[in-house]
């Protein structure tokens, strides 16, 4: 997967403010969980979203860009993906 300007790694050193585990949820559940966490957070907070839904790979980057937040990194695991999103 390639997303312009976003690092895709196997592990990251970013320390999240909060983690949202949306594994097992079907779309749009993971994105809505992320939106809820960003809604509740403060500017500068980093939300780590865990999702195993394939569609999150497109849904999450599209929404993050639309909302003006920052997707710092995407961490690939065997059976899920972790997205690191900073609230603007």
């Amino acid at each position: 997967m390639e997303i312009k300007g976003v690092g895709v790694t196997m592990s990251t050193s970013i320390e999240p403010t909060t983690t949202v585990d949306a594994r097992g949820a079907t779309c749009p559940g993971p994105l809505m969980d992320l939106i809820g966490a960003i809604r509740d957070g403060e500017s500068g907070d980093v939300v780590r979203l865990l999702s195993d839904a394939e569609q999150s790979r497109t849904d999450v980057p599209e929404w993050v860009e639309e909302a003006g937040n920052t997707l710092h990194e995407i961490e690939e695991h065997d059976d899920y993906t972790a997205f690191y999103v900073e609230k603007a």
């Binding site: 749009p28 809505m32 849904d59 929404w63």
Partner: peptide, 10 residues
């Protein structure tokens, strides 16, 4: 609608 579609189900 909150996401990029008009409904949660594609």
């Amino acid at each position: 609608y909150p996401i990029q579609r008009v409904h949660g189900n594609a």
